[in-house]
Design a protein around this nucleic acid. Structure first.
Length: 433
RNA sequence: GCGAAUGUAGCUCAGCAGGUUAGAGCACCAGAUUGUGGAUCUGGGGGCCGAGGGUUCAAAUCCCUCCAUUCGCCCCA
């Protein structure tokens, strides 16, 4: 244990990595906002029971991956491992149903799962979630999928595959489960992995999703859910696919796609990417029509998805941030200029320019080097000479040219500077010019 | 929870048939150039060699334990 060390699976995110996260968040606000989704900021701590009942007591998440502890009065609290349960709780607790027929929320922030960290998997990780409550039309499914793909392309991502499946509903799933169980009973249990042998008695659907070669081989001839879905579910799913087709969205039917949380039904989906290691799934979600009622809320349908920000960041890469180049950097040659630098910087910022001030005295050469490293476009030089003349030297770091202007006209200079910057931005140039 | 690899300077790593004061590149600081930056040259600061124990005259190097990181399995976003 070292006090100066992050907890395992928790990370500090500095620039330029943090710029990539800002970029993802801004894109999310833009795209989801354009679809009528409003931001919901949720607590990261909930009563443990919410997740046990929401996610399912037999899921891996609840069985062994939650950060759970007792508060000072002995109540069991859990750091949220996913967002949907919290959204449903907030929706119900605040009576959203009586205010509007359909509620659309997005929420983003850290989630916590006690897993072994590896590439693209942290114990504190970050998700962007969208939830649409109150709509069960297939077009709602199609729209949220289109919105997800639009978000991902807004991040500049390509080469992603949308995998989709239907899990059926409370009507048809029991019949399918029975057929699957019958098939599995005819199998030599030795052909299944240890976990799947347990799943036989608890959640046999998940065996289809197992990644073990032996299990995949053994279940090759298993009955497919598609053949058992009731007419309502089949029609619903066909409509979803047809709508996606009409809107030109590509998808891949994956009959074995089973999600790891118990509340999913009907449409389920996952977006996978090649090239970010073993943790290839960047987004996933589905419909959860019974969940709100099961948690004690109104009987409303819902559909939603989550995107893993760490994994999206891996795909976006370091270059994806949108950090702006600083306009100025203040260089003091002797300490007497600090008062002036402080107020001069405030004037520049008041005109919309951005930059840092270095109040420590030092040689010009060293200060210019710091300005270069800072990336600023202009170095504002305040030395003994300038103070005596009540002027400031402004050096253009790209061209090497410099001017000396009276301090009294600094605001005018800043105004002109800010205007040309805005024009450049309107022309759509990259902010780094 | 399981498997494998790796821990040496701020960063990337070399050094390991045990043998003096532990090295390089990059980065940083200073000077050459008294107040003009990205180049060059010269110099400089910086290390409980992950931690603890053991073997030995002698351990960064060999053995054991622990800790941490990473990549997989699993799980999922």
């Amino acid at each position: 244990m070292n006090a100066l060390q992050t907890v395992k699976g928790f990370a500090d995110i500095f620039a330029p990595q943090s710029d990539v996260y800002t970029f993802m968040e801004n894109t999310a606000r833009r795209v989801f906002g354009a679809h009528g989704y409003s931001e919901l900021r949720l607590p990261i701590l909930e009563y443990t029971e919410l997740f046990q009942r929401g996610i399912g007591a037999d899921t891996d998440i609840v069985r062994k991956e939650m950060f759970t502890f007792a508060d000072r009065k002995g109540r069991s609290l859990t750091l949220r491992p996913e967002a949907t349960a919290g959204v449903v709780r907030a929706y119900t607790e605040n009576g959203c149903r009586s205010r509007e027929r359909v509620s659309r929320f997005f929420t983003l922030g850290p989630m916590f799962r006690y897993e072994r960290p590896q590439l693209g998997r942290m114990r504190q990780f970050h998700q962007i979630n969208c939830e649409c409550l109150g709509a069960d039309e297939p077009h709602a499914d199609a729209e949220i999928l289109l919105m997800l793909m639009s978000f991902l392309s807004g991040l500049g991502l390509a080469d992603l595959t949308l995998k989709i499946n239907t899990l059926g509903c409370r009507v048809c799933r029991p019949a399918y489960r029975e057929a699957l169980n019958a098939f599995l009973r005819g199998l030599d249990p030795e052909r299944l992995c240890f976990d799947c042998r347990r799943r036989l008695g608890t959640n046999s659907l998940r065996i289809l999703d197992c990644k073990e070669d032996s299990c995949r081989e053994a279940t090759r001839g298993a009955p497919e859910l598609r053949g058992y879905v009731c007419p309502d579910c089949a029609a619903h799913f066909d409509s979803v696919l047809a709508a996606l087709e009409r809107e030109g969205a590509g998808w891949e039917l994956d009959p074995r796609l089973v999600r790891g949380l118990d509340y999913y039904m009907r449409t389920t989906f996952e977006v996978v990417s090649a090239g970010i290691g073993a943790q290839s799934s960047v987004a996933g979600g589905g419909r959860y029509d019974g969940l709100v009622r099961d948690l004690g809320g109104p009987d409303v349908p819902g559909i939603g998805f989550a995107c893993g920000m760490e994994r999206l960041a891996l795909l976006i890469g370091e270059s994806g941030g949108e950090a702006e180049r600083p306009d100025f950097y203040f260089a003091l040659l002797d300490g007497k200029g600090a008062d002036l630098a402080l107020s001069a910087a405030r004037i520049l910022r008041g005109q919309g320019l951005a930059g840092a001030a270095d109040f420590s005295p030092g040689g010009l050469k060293g200060k210019l080097r710091l300005a270069v490293r800072n990336g600023a476009q202009f170095c504002m030089i305040l030395g003994e000479d300038e103070l005596a003349r009540e002027e400031i030297v402004i050096k253009n770091m790209d061209e090497g040219s410099q001017v000396s202007i009276p301090l009294s006209s600094l605001a005018d200079w800043a105004e002109i500077r800010a205007e040309t910057k805005r024009e450049r931005g309107r022309k759509g140039g990259c902010g780094n010019l």
